[in-house]
Design a protein around this nucleic acid. Sequence first.
DNA 1: TTGCGTGCAAAGGTTTTGCATGGCA
DNA 2: TGCCATGCAAAACCTTTGCACGCAA
Lengths: 153, 153
Amino acid sequence: MNIRPKYKTKQREILLSYLQAASGGHITASDVCEYFRKQGASIGQATVYRQLESLVDEGLVNKYIIDSNSPACFEYVGKDAHEEGEVCFHCKCEKCGKLIHLHCDELEAIKDHLSGEHHFQLDPLRTVFYGICEECRKALSSGDAPAGSSDQN
Amino acid sequence: MNIRPKYKTKQREILLSYLQAASGGHITASDVCEYFRKQGASIGQATVYRQLESLVDEGLVNKYIIDSNSPACFEYVGKDAHEEGEVCFHCKCEKCGKLIHLHCDELEAIKDHLSGEHHFQLDPLRTVFYGICEECRKALSSGDAPAGSSDQN
DNA sequence: TTGCGTGCAAAGGTTTTGCATGGCA
DNA sequence: TGCCATGCAAAACCTTTGCACGCAA
């Protein structure tokens, strides 16, 4: 939550608009670099990481760490969501690696439960539910390997 | 959940007994290497990672990722918890690194909820709730940094 | 003009991989 | 004996850092 002076640079604007456009999706640092390349613009990876870090500090962007050896994901959440109690949970399929994005009151309730009963202040931003997604479960029960499985991360 | 043939090697046994002895604590790959060195035994880091991966696959050990650029932590959870329907959830304090074990019906209920409503089959063994534990929250709200803060892997 | 932001390249650290050897069953 | 596990070293990977230059204010 470092509020430091911010210049309005071209890189920051493009990055921010990209994140906003992809709102609800998950973007990695290398996605950002690729996007800039496609736009004909260019950016150094160091800048990407530094800008993303700033945006996370400012609360405009969330950072998710799904697995230790896959790159961190970023997602634009905006100022409102940050100030609101807007909570978002993530489910990660252990089989196909898919990341599912959930807004759900019942899940939010566990936040209160953990806080009230277990005195633990849940951080939904960092918490990822691991398990098996619908397609993979179907594929598993219907015999064997799903279509494009075998991946992971 | 790969059940592959397992040989009972010296390295595996020492590693497993170390993890069991440190049950409830969190251990990194380099901790393991150091432990072997102290024991007069030796092990290659590749073996450490490979064994840990196997143990995680078997459900004997859980893997926790606290921060993208700090090493992953491992913890022995045992076979019983895995084979029984006995569900155990883990809360990890992002501040002090403490790992809290929870047996709780309400948390188990989210398993059914995710399955019923979101068609996602939760794997409690892999899932870790991240957040702030009671002591750290108190320490944070009561002014500033807690006693031995600033740590965390 | 000031000093933050940028870019390049190199470093940092963790984790993975290839290949020959050793050891369990 | 057959195969898996091991160990070493090197690679791969994401991310951070140093330093000089460019650009916003």
